[in-house]
């Protein structure tokens, strides 16, 4: 191997390999407690299945509501679980940012030579999120039986949904830099996004709809089954992609701005 080959890779490729290594380490850590890990995955799949069962019962009683049918709600839960699962199985630490900032635990990540947010986000895997990925893919392919085009659109939408969850979670947790103890607020904001995202877009109108396409970007998620997978609307899809990119960029900027306000707690601790 030449000297040049030993230099660390640069750019996007370097970050991809960086994330890949983190994922391998996180997975190896989870596999140390194999039974618990598998139990959590199955537990989350059961949890998602129970929610989906509610909708299946609902659509058995009311076959069409506001243009939504059973297949649409299955797609909604599948894409939501798939996107959420991708986000939190790779970046499982983002829903702990607020508590890390408040406790002064961020110091640990500041000494690393890479992007701080990426390091912080990828340093933990949410085991249950793997169950969400499995549930999303399984349910979509088993119950919706998509065409190849629908399958591609589903996977692309799932990745964009993951970006939305990442951006929104990082932004709400970054409030801790300004407000201090913002753990409850950020948790409730994340729960609000998930809650709105898992109900059919057709039931919301007027000002609520406006909020769901701005302040709480759940409208981009809960419109996917009808506006992307069932009847592809290129304009909506472009809007979904733009919103995802915007939230990723905004979350990075907001986190960096917050970081400038961060005060070290000079916390001494042992990490094992």
């Amino acid at each position: 191997m030449s000297k040049e080959d030993k230099r660390p890779p640069r750019g996007l490729r370097s970050y991809v390999s960086f994330l890949f290594e983190y994922m391998k380490a996180n997975l190896a850590m989870q596999m140390e407690y194999r039974v618990t890990f598998i139990g959590r995955i199955i537990g989350m799949m059961v949890n998602d299945a129970m929610w989906l069962s509610f909708w299946l019962i609902y659509f058995t009683r009311f076959p069409v509501v506001q243009g939504w049918e059973r297949a649409d709600v299955v797609t909604l839960w599948a894409v939501c679980a798939f996107g959420f699962g991708i986000c939190f199985s790779v970046f499982g630490n983002i829903n702990r940012i607020a508590s890390i900032v408040v406790r002064g635990d961020l110091d640990f990540y500041l000494v690393y030579p890479r992007h701080v947010l990426l390091h912080l986000a990828a340093s933990r895997m949410d085991a249950t999120a793997v169950g969400d990925v499995a549930f999303g893919l399984g349910v979509f392919f088993a119950l919706v039986r998509p065409t190849p085009l629908q399958a591609i659109l589903f996977v692309l939408s799932g990745i964009l949904v993951a970006c939305l969850f990442f951006g929104f979670t990082v932004i709400t947790h970054s409030l801790a830099f300004v407000l201090g103890n913002a753990e409850m607020l950020s948790d409730q904001a994340s729960a609000t996004l998930i809650h709105f995202a898992t109900y059919p877009s057709g039931i919301f109108d007027g000002p609520t709809r406006a909020i769901l396409f701005t302040l709480i970007p759940a409208g981009f998620i809960n419109s996917i089954p009808v506006s992307v997978v069932r009847d592809f609307d290129p304009l909506f899809f472009a809007g979904l992609a733009a919103a995802s990119v915007f939230l990723i960029v905004a979350s990075d900027r907001i986190f960096k701005a917050g970081l400038r306000k961060y005060e070290s707690g000079n916390l001494m601790q042992v990490r094992m």
Binding site: V64, A191, T192, H195, Y199, G202, I203, T208
Partner: peptide, 20 residues
């Protein structure tokens, strides 16, 4: 306070269902 969100969504769902 999250109960407010849950209830608001229930109101939207069931108002739509009864109307439909």
């Amino acid at each position: 306070l999250f109960v407010v969100i849950v209830m608001f969504v229930f109101v939207q769902l069931w108002k739509t269902t009864y109307r439909w």
